[in-house]
């Protein structure tokens, strides 16, 4: 756990860390535990009790690295990896900006355009090449971008307004000129700027700032819990108020 947290902090957005609780704790229990340990809010981390694939060792902790193409590259006790884990992560982060291995030469430049956020150019080049490989690459670019748009939609639906704004800003730049996807992004930007979202926006800002302030201090100290309760009351009816309320409830989990 500590080494994975260190890596999460070190690599930030470039690395996704998934913490999988394997000892039968409930979601409330492990989430409260993580807050108490001041682990919440560190890097790009998510928490679940579902194993996305089986463990291979006899005990915990166990770490697995999944590469940019979805393949498991390493799995075992983190103490056995030494520097190799960090080296593999760095190599994958680099790979994220390159074409997948085995990509035919004419398509390598296209992947590079895609990685740089030049989607329209990448799609146009795929259409120009017209090969089966180019068609597959085009499908992959569209699928990945569509998933990012779906994520923006989810963020808006769930009141993560700040995150949605950041996400859409980058998406907007990336899809410029790619008409079919640009339309979808524009629809989400319109939702983002809708005055009806004002209450959610204010709530998101206040609650997100609060979480940022308490995550590394003593999150569940009485004044913090009171503050969370008062934020929940002030912004009642918003998704962020629900989150503040949940935080207060988690402080009571033993």
């Amino acid at each position: 756990m500590p080494s994975a947290l260190k890596l999460a902090e070190e690599y930030g957005d470039a690395l996704q860390v998934i913490f999988v609780e394997c000892q039968g704790a409930t979601r409330d229990q492990y989430e409260a535990f993580a807050w108490k340990q001041k682990w919440m809010g560190l890097g790009n981390t998510m928490w679940t009790e579902e194993r996305p694939f089986p463990t291979v060792g006899n005990g915990l902790p166990e770490t697995a690295l999944v590469g940019v193409d979805g393949q498991i590259l390493m799995q075992g006790h983190p103490g056995n990896f030494g520097k190799k884990l960090e080296e593999a992560i760095a190599a994958e982060i680099k790979k994220a900006k390159e074409a997948p291995s085995g990509t035919p030469a004419p398509l390598k430049k296209v992947w590079s355009s895609f990685a740089k956020g030049e989607l329209a150019e990448a799609l146009a080049e795929c259409d120009k090449l017209g090969t089966e490989d180019a068609k597959a690459a085009r499908d992959e670019f569209v699928a990945r971008t569509t998933r990012r748009i779906a994520r923006a939609k989810w963020l808006l639906d769930n009141g993560f307004v700040g995150e949605a704004e950041k996400h859409l800003e980058k998406l907007g730049k990336d899809v410029k000129g790619a008409a079919e996807l640009e339309t979808l992004v524009t629809a989400e930007v319109t939702r983002l700027n809708d005055p009806a979202l004002a209450a959610e926006r204010d709530a998101a800002k206040a609650v997100s700032t609060f979480f940022g302030q308490v995550a590394k201090k003593k999150p569940f100290d009485a004044p913090n819990v009171q503050k969370a309760e008062s934020l929940a009351e002030k912004h009642t009816g918003t998704k962020s108020a629900e989150r503040a309320s949940r935080f207060a409830a988690l402080s009571k989990v033993r």
């Binding site: 470039a14 860390v17 492990y30 535990f33 940019v68």
Partner: peptide, 15 residues
């Protein structure tokens, strides 16, 4: 699948 294109570190742990 939502995470394709980014390395993912999966940490199996216990409370």
């Amino acid at each position: 699948a939502d995470l394709r294109g980014k390395p993912v570190l999966v940490d199996f742990w216990g409370t």
